[in-house]
Design a protein around this nucleic acid. Structure first.
Lengths: 232, 232
DNA sequence: CACACTTTTCACCACCTGGTGAAAAAGTGC
DNA sequence: GCACTTTTTCACCAGGTGGTGAAAAGTGTG
């Protein structure tokens, strides 16, 4: 499927052969990703992962070590791509618009890469976003995990928003970011809840509908909070 | 703690005695609630629940049956209270303001009961909200579960919003609700993420700060979406 | 072919899982 | 004290868990 050949590792002398091993590693990650996304870390056994990948259980430990390390590998694999895409998007926006930046523009530059990747990047990304959304709502260890992987790009967003609205207080910026990320993650994880709730009027897989609303929604919310707090 | 005496059940002839059993039932639910909220359904064993409740494992099965039924009992226990509080709040708002209703007012009437309960209702509610947030982001079975327990009050919100803004399309109303619920649930679950992200500037336990921003945020977002879509 | 090396399989372990059935204990009305 | 019900404990099971170590299969190099 995705199967980007990362190469790297496989230290010793004998060259890493043609492929098989590395392909299997990706296959295992793909299976683990889908299962973790659907059932959470504790809801998946290494045996299930192995079965879906068509692989012996021991091979998972050979490549990744403990179950938790497998999970981290899944989480890490796409985090870099994501962070870079968002960072590039925001930098491009800042450079292109400079003084003429808007709140909605910044927020769009922050969120839209995720929507685009989810739409164009293949099925694995949908699972990945569901996974991140789940981790984001996990009190036990979700906070640290999210911080470890995603803090820098969020600070970039906050700092850019501070440039556009210099009078806004950081307290408000952070709260608005939390509101934003709650909406965004729920939309990206495509839980199907809105489908049944709206009795078929809306579909959680319709990211175009999200695009047409979420940016304006978050931007207006942000402006309202800043205006209200600045006044008070 | 909470210990509302539900009575009900315990069929036979001998009257249900004074208490012990019913208290234990609540104790088990409390322990299960806290553990499920922190680690998710699969991250908790019946043994852990039993241990924290100071009870034999078999007693859990005696009272609740299978593990999943215990979970449902936890979920159900507070759902009714929640739904009723929100319904009362919204009805009161409609009756009080009538023609002079605003979007922000409706949204406040929908969300504020949860904030108040979380602040005043004792520690169990915080766990409960974290639990609901987690379920809300669970693709596998979260959608059905949320629908089963919370659909009616959501429809009440949507219908009331439709009264306030008759030109708004239902599609937009449902999407805005999803954005709203994502923000709201993340705020209520108090994951602590905003604490570390903001380096101490914000605290996820500060629901007063949420109250001062979330209503205005969601209302402005809603108005922006409706205005934009109405124009297009 | 033998070789050094990596990748994959197989058999296995100690421990834990959800759940059960029967016995014991505690409560209740007479 | 006595029959009777409900609550609580105890011992236990079949199956699954994450994880390991050694053997086997594959791979390129002389």
């Amino acid at each position: 499927m995705t199967a980007t050949k990362t190469r790297a590792r496989s230290g010793g002398r004998g060259r890493p052969s043609k492929a098989t091993g590395l392909d299997l590693k990706e296959t295992i990650l793909d299976s683990a990703e889908g299962l973790f996304a659907r059932h959470g870390f504790h809801g998946v056994t290494t045996r299930q992962v192995a079965a879906e990948a068509g692989v012996d259980t021991a091979l998972i430990h050979y490549y990744f070590g403990a179950k938790r390390e497998l999970f981290d590998a899944v989480f890490l694999r796409r985090a870099d791509i994501l962070n870079q895409a968002r960072s590039v998007s925001m930098n491009a926006y800042v450079e292109t618009f400079g003084e003429r930046m808007t709140v909605e523009g910044v927020i769009t530059a922050f969120i839209d890469p995720l929507l685009r990747i989810s739409q164009e990047g293949g099925g694995g990304w949908k699972s990945y976003f569901a996974l991140v959304a789940q981790v984001n709502n996990t009190p036990a260890w979700g906070g640290e995990t999210m911080a470890r992987f995603f803090d820098p790009v969020v600070h970039q967003l906050v700092d850019t928003l501070k440039i556009v609205r210099p009078d806004a207080e950081y307290r408000d910026l952070y709260w608005c970011y939390q509101f934003l990320t709650g909406s965004m993650m729920l939309a990206l994880s495509e839980t199907g809840r809105i489908d049944s709730l709206s009795e078929g009027v809306c579909h959680s897989s319709d990211l175009e509908a999200v695009r047409a609303r979420l940016f304006a929604y978050c931007a207006a919310g942000f402006e309202a909070v800043v205006a209200k707090r600045g006044k008070a």
